[in-house]
């Protein structure tokens, strides 16, 4: 009886990670660092500041492949994969009719939402760690490794940089948790999982576009996509915590509001599918 509260969560994780489509998403994400690594390896060395951040540094230190891969996948592929899983969460169960089965077991609706959201967060973390981990492995296989130069020009030990890289992955996962909360809310609004997935992905892209138009700079601080790239601060010396703290706060507010909306919707919804 001790592990009781976690049984449904474990079942949910098996459902999410056992699903072929989701495994394919993780596989596609893992190709990003592989492709970048091979491309950098076969092309002529020497970066001139063009292309994504850190690209030039990869040839000197394989660890930067992990950073580059996260930077490249963060604007679109990572949020898209979280949008797919979160959009599926409630709407998928509703469309297959399994939602009514769970509710008459009974699984409390609030508990179901929390379990679903927790598994979305875990998937986001797994997605970030896949990009990070594959980037690290491919980077270390193809390129030299050793002490790492930070953005501030300071050199730190490999172990120190590895720790920073792990924190970067965790920060990225926290940012993806914001996308997941939005997706979970959309997922309670419809019985069509594709609709919830598309709405989440579109909202993310709109937020990123608005975040690139200087004429609407005043609303930038309120967008959930604005603080995403603040993970770069972990590669400075000393590490400025302010922007990342704002980032975590922003996502925290988005998560709280969208989970409350999802809760209000799910607990008052007539399950007629």
């Amino acid at each position: 009886m001790r592990s009781q509260p976690l049984r449904l969560f474990r079942s949910e994780l098996r459902l999410v990670f056992g699903r072929r489509r989701n495994q394919a998403l993780l596989a596609v994400l893992s190709t990003a660092p592989i492709l970048i690594g091979i491309a950098v390896r076969v092309s002529s060395p020497g970066g001139d500041g063009e292309g994504p951040a850190f690209l030039g540094q990869i040839t000197q230190n394989g660890l930067f492949l992990a950073f580059t891969a996260l930077t490249v996948t963060l604007p679109f592929f990572l949020p898209l994969s979280v949008a797919v899983v979160s959009g599926e969460a409630i709407a998928g169960e509703a469309s297959s009719g399994t939602l009514r089965n769970l509710l008459v077991v009974p699984v409390d609706r609030t508990r179901l939402l929390l379990v679903k959201y927790a598994s979305i967060v875990v998937f986001g973390l797994a997605a970030a760690l896949v990009v990070w981990g594959v980037g690290l492995i491919v980077g270390l296989l193809l390129f030299p490794h050793g002490a790492v130069t930070l953005l501030s020009g300071t050199t730190v030990s490999f172990a120190n940089a590895l720790g920073r890289a792990l924190l970067v992955a965790l920060y990225v996962a926290a940012m993806l948790a914001g996308v997941g909360a939005i997706g979970a809310f959309f997922s309670t609004l419809t019985e069509v999982p594709m609709g919830a997935m598309a709405a989440t992905a579109v909202l993310t892209i709109i937020s990123e576009i608005v975040g690139a138009v200087p004429q609407v700079r005043v609303i930038w601080p309120y967008l959930f996509t604005t603080p995403w790239l603040a993970f770069g601060d972990l590669l400075r010396s000393p590490v400025p915590l302010h922007a990342m703290a704002i980032g975590l706060l922003t996502e925290g507010v988005y998560i709280a509001l969208f989970l409350l909306l999802a809760w209000a919707r799910l607990t008052t919804k007539d399950i007629s599918s």
């Binding site: 509001l257 809760w263 209000a264 607990t267 008052t268």
Partner: peptide, 16 residues
């Protein structure tokens, strides 16, 4: 009581 649940996210948004 069911409809009043929506007042909770509304209150949260107002607080923010």
């Amino acid at each position: 009581s069911l409809r009043s649940r929506w007042t909770i996210p509304a209150a949260g948004a107002t607080a923010v």
